[in-house]
């Protein structure tokens, strides 16, 4: 752990899908700077894509004239991603993650975003307030077994 592996990044951008890739790349690069390998950086990127896309689609109902604030905190222990918005809050109680065996058997479509975020990050939390926040954490000593 060096001083170069600590830092904060903040980007505010419009609630439009065309900006999501840019944010995804920032998240991936931040993970690399924090010292995570390419595989983990890719997972952080996908989880970020899903989280931001959810905010645009569900919290803001696809309306393009709102703003989203994306924050990354690189700490000695972890990488913390925060997606902050003022749209509709996601209630933790309402979250039901799909059973993938049934999902595939029944050829379902959609509804995988939250599952991907949970699978690819160590912690995913939703905080409600004046502003709402989806906070995702990847620990250096991950609680999840990393594949290649």
């Amino acid at each position: 752990m060096t001083d170069q592996q600590k830092g904060n990044i903040m980007v505010t951008f419009p609630s439009q899908n065309q900006y999501v890739h840019m944010i995804t790349m920032v998240a991936s690069n931040a993970a690399s700077i924090a010292g995570f390998d390419k595989s983990v950086a890719g997972k952080v990127a996908i989880a970020t894509d899903e989280a931001v896309t959810n905010v645009i689609k569900h919290a803001y109902g696809g309306k393009p004239n709102h703003t989203i604030t994306f924050k990354v905190e690189i700490t000695p222990e972890s990488l913390v991603i925060k997606i902050i918005h003022t749209g509709a809050a996601l209630s933790k109680k309402s979250i039901v993650l799909p059973d993938m065996k049934k999902y595939i058997e029944e050829r379902r479509r959609g509804g995988l975003g939250l599952l991907i975020m949970n699978q690819f990050m160590d912690e995913v939390d939703y905080q409600e307030g004046k502003q709402h926040c989806c906070q995702m954490t990847k620990y250096r000593k991950s609680t999840k077994t990393e594949q290649k």
Binding site: I46, I116, F120
Partner: peptide
């Protein structure tokens, strides 16, 4: 597939489909 793409298929079990 690159590693990132494979990971998403593998994690969700789509490699069985």
């Amino acid at each position: 597939m690159n590693e990132t793409v494979f990971n998403i298929f593998d994690t969700l079990g789509f490699t069985h489909l």
